[in-house]
Amino acid sequence: MIEVRDVRKTYTTGEVEFEALRGVSFSIKDGEFVAIMGPSGSGKSTLMHILGALDTPTKGKYILDGKDVSTLSDDELADIRRDKIGFVFQAFNLLPRTTVLRNVMLPLVYAEVDGEMRKTKAEQALRAAGLDEEHFIHLSNQLSGGQIQRVAIARALVNDPTLILADEPTGNLDTKTGEIVLGTFQRLNEEYGRTIVLITHEHEIAKHADRIISIRDGKIVEDSGTHARRSAHHRHETY
């Protein structure tokens, strides 16, 4: 359960103040697949940083799993990211010259999961993300773009997070591969009941989600949440 209440974010550069978010409120229930859509400069990246506990709001509250994240220290935010958030980036951000398994196991290193358990969990996540077993021991730079992004999705999944945040996950992929990756998100949402927030500027991509929150100039201009395409009664179980 995610609750965002009247969140504002102001950046100050010298004497110039810029308000990136100007009072944003919404809530996302567990198991929802939400797209946050807006053009560049709309504040969607700022919103993603706050949702991902990478940044805190200047004003307002962000409550994740009943815990107020908006006032936490850097180290406490790191714990939230480690336990509750899984990131998928546009630029993939895999460790270069490193095996697929090792990449996926990386979050478990910080979660101090035991060695054997790491491998089991990483393999599970990779299967859930739809990567063929033969690629598990390949180096990250030996894979195609679509495969890389699936490794990144597996890495986001491996810690069993409350929320998966995908920031323009198809931005570096061609349309066909992008479709496959989006399909993966849909499957994770439907089959495994994962809560997914997709940040994008393209409506084509956003429409894969069940609910679209449109944002412009730091404010929500439209939220399709009330008339969801599908009712959100997903099975909630770990993959």
């Binding site: 991902g52 990478l54 850097d74 180290d75 790191a78 714990d79 990211r81 480690r82 336990d83 990131f87 980036f89 630029a91 951000n93 460790l95 990386l106 979050p107 910080y110 979660a111 890495r155 810690n159």
Partner: peptide, 16 residues
């Protein structure tokens, strides 16, 4: 730098 950013995003603390 990017690797450090990623490590921090997936839960690495300053100390780590």
């Amino acid at each position: 730098t990017r690797e450090i950013g990623l490590r921090k995003a997936i839960g690495a603390k300053k100390k780590d």
